[in-house]
Design a protein around this nucleic acid. Structure first.
Lengths: 166, 166
DNA sequence: ACTGAAATCGCGTCAAC
DNA sequence: GTTGACGCGATTTCAGT
């Protein structure tokens, strides 16, 4: 399927059948159409049409292999909170653009609460994390108050979105 | 493919070719074997064997459709930090087990820093989030100091793990 | 209009070199 | 590591409801 960002945001209604499909596809993203159709008790063409529609509507944004972080050599993951100094508020979009370029930053959100941004970061080891924070992140103008929460144990690995009852 | 958790943790070496495959599969998890083989300049059977091996070694943990959160009706996402009171330290595993049951909790990590746990949570709206926090999370014995950071804007959506140079 | 059955075509998959 | 063959599954078309 096309993996480019959808032109239109997800719209329309998502019915119970759609939810069943999404539940299955979130856990088995490579399931064949026949397997999928059997799982939701739908004929193969119907199932196919439904999934296609979900993709085109942007409800399904894409498909991704879930890769073991440690196997790729990233033994460290951390959540990093960041503030922007008042003097640099005007340049916030520059900061955000810069953030998106760093491959070590897996996610970035603006958040309510004590800090302005929350980032999810991976690094080879603690030294690499430290270097990234001081040599990269803190070098960006306006960045202040960088605090990191290093992930010690994964209690619940990334789970699918719940699909019960819209 | 089998989506059950791998019996063994990812092991062995991941070479440059593997990394190219992983890069591609993280962005196009449903890519056909022929498309994949073309992308990494490998014969189809070779490519197939590589991917199979990556799956069996647990480097690829599974495949998932990426579903639009808002399309499923979850207009609110938040990171929630939680402490465990000293008296309940012994029952920490109970807490963790409970946490895993809640479908609204998409992720949970123990972290270094000011709090013990960091959770990623979705909810239908702010009211539902509030109810979840007070009626569910805070009801768990030992839970204290619940603070939530509500996601305001997604600056960088979940990105694939970097695959350049292991 | 929408559903499901059937037919085709291409790909996944395996075996032999 | 590559080439070729076999069989299944994806995808489309068509007829029936």
């Amino acid at each position: 399927m096309d993996q480019s960002p959808p032109a239109t945001p997800a719209q329309g209604t998502v019915d119970t059948l759609d939810r069943r499909l999404l539940a299955h596809l979130q856990r088995a993203g490579r399931a064949s159409n026949v397997e999928l159709s059997a799982a939701v008790h739908l004929s193969a063409p119907q199932c196919f049409r439904r999934v296609k529609a979900l993709e085109e509507r942007g409800v399904i944004r894409g498909y991704a292999a879930q890769v073991d972080r440690e196997a790729l050599g990233y033994s460290v993951m951390a959540f990093v909170s960041v503030d922007i100094t008042a003097e640099q508020f005007a340049r916030v979009r520059e900061f955000e653009h810069t953030i998106r370029q760093f491959p070590e930053i897996l996610e970035c959100h603006t958040v309510s609460g004590d800090s302005d941004y929350l980032l999810k970061v991976v690094a080879r080891d603690l030294k690499a994390l430290s270097q990234f924070l001081t040599d990269r992140l803190m070098q960006i103008s306006g960045v202040a108050n960088v605090r990191s929460m290093i992930c010690l144990e994964e209690i619940k690995p990334p789970a699918p979105l719940p699909t019960e009852a819209g």
